[in-house]
Design a binder for these strands. Structure first.
Lengths: 228, 228
DNA sequence: TCAAAAGTGTTTCAAGTACACCCATGA
DNA sequence: TCATGGGTGTACTTGAAACACTTTTGA
């Protein structure tokens, strides 16, 4: 029986945190401040303790290294090729989350010397197999966002329809037709008007909406299927 | 550094193998022949060695315990709550596969005393959290099969359109319209006629088709998206 | 008054739904 | 000849796509 505060051997966690800014998708990376990978960029992550669930471990590690907190991490999958980690055998479990960049101030913590956002189309060389993990996780996101309404997490609570459209265009890497995009979304009855308009814009102010999770859950029960 | 033939601590693999028979979905279970779970049904699985990838481990364990071989296992996800395994902390990685039941003769092997198929709507009490894993994995399958052409793996190489329809009806648990189902599938250009008809049927013999993976891959490149 | 984005209307065409129908075959 | 599943035709309805258009607003 292991002591509960010990670390599990051969098993780690890595987090792919997606953000949205300037009409582009970014991911959150940390720079290692020690060890053989010192100075290299990598996904936030680390070791799991015997007395915590893997979900809890993912959240603890992310928060400690980047100061990003109060977000919902979801598991993607495990990566377990034999040579993926130097020196010893390590299998890693990958988590991901979609967040609104503006909500967070970043602070490097733990064994990490720096934290920053990187455009997904221009990510730096990364430690271990983190480039491969990131690419696969992004492909997974591109697929998932068309079938589930998870994109809203990348935006502020209140957003305009154009912001939402630009988000989809950034992730799917294709232009969408504005009138048709509007109609499709509105017809789903997932967006609720905030009775509020954009401020400090020099053009006509857009209506702001928020995602209505309750309606979505009700629709799900009736067999509704989100598709974009 | 660990010896390469040693087992990784705190990490296991479990396999959910789906089959199709008599218009119903089944899963493959093993009965434990030793240990504290002796006599209980469970998912095929076990421990990972230091010198094998997790994909290889899943295949090795499944084959050793059930004699099911030459199939493609895909990873679902890891389950890692603290109390899910008795006595010690174990995180398990779940794999799944879709197979044609008739292709396999089952033979219990390793620490397993019995192997059998169970209807998904009537699974026995299982060891550990395997019931929860099975349910989640089946939900995942129900979703996945509507967006990717993976169902064909549950059928013989050559199948009739009604067999395919019954498969979808079994998984999605709803009746489908025959003429419309036919047309939808045929229009996708994923099925190739085998120039062969059913034999030994007492009604009109149906045309047999096979899934054309090459065409599918080509269509994928062009942006095709499978939907049912 | 102009540029930029908000937001609406309309035509066209493809695709899904529902259901009636005929065909082939062995018991 | 009848039951059973194989297979086709068609009218109806919905919904996506394309694009022209009007509205609002600050500079």
């Amino acid at each position: 029986m292991n002591a509960t505060n010990e670390i599990i051997d051969a098993l780690s966690i890595d987090c792919v945190i997606f953000g949205f800014k300037d009409a582009a998708i970014s991911i959150l990376l940390v720079k290692h401040g020690q060890g053989v990978t010192k100075g290299q960029w990598a996904l936030p992550g680390g070791w799991i303790m015997y007395n915590e669930s893997i979900d809890d471990a993912a959240y603890r590690l992310l928060t400690a290294q980047t100061a990003v907190k109060n977000i919902y991490l979801e598991q993607y999958q495990a990566f377990g090729k034999v040579g993926r980690f130097p020196e010893k055998r390590v299998i890693t479990i990958c988590y991901y989350a979609l967040v609104n960049i503006e909500k967070f101030e970043l602070h490097a913590g733990g064994s990490v010397s720096q934290v920053d956002w990187f455009n997904i189309r221009n990510i730096p060389k990364m430690a271990f197999d983190h480039t491969e993990i990131t690419k696969k996780c992004f492909s997974f996101l591109q697929h998932k966002i068309r079938h589930e309404p998870i994109g809203f997490n990348l935006l502020p609570k209140k957003f305009s329809l154009l912001q939402l459209q630009e988000l989809y265009e950034a992730i799917l890497d294709q232009k969408l037709d504005k009138p048709n995009f509007r109609r499709r979304l509105m017809k789903m009855n997932l967006l609720v008007s905030c009775d509020e308009k954009q401020k400090d814009v020099w053009h006509r102010a857009a209506q702001l909406y928020r995602f209505d999770k309750k309606s979505y859950d009700q629709l799900l029960d009736k067999g509704f299927s989100f598709e974009i």
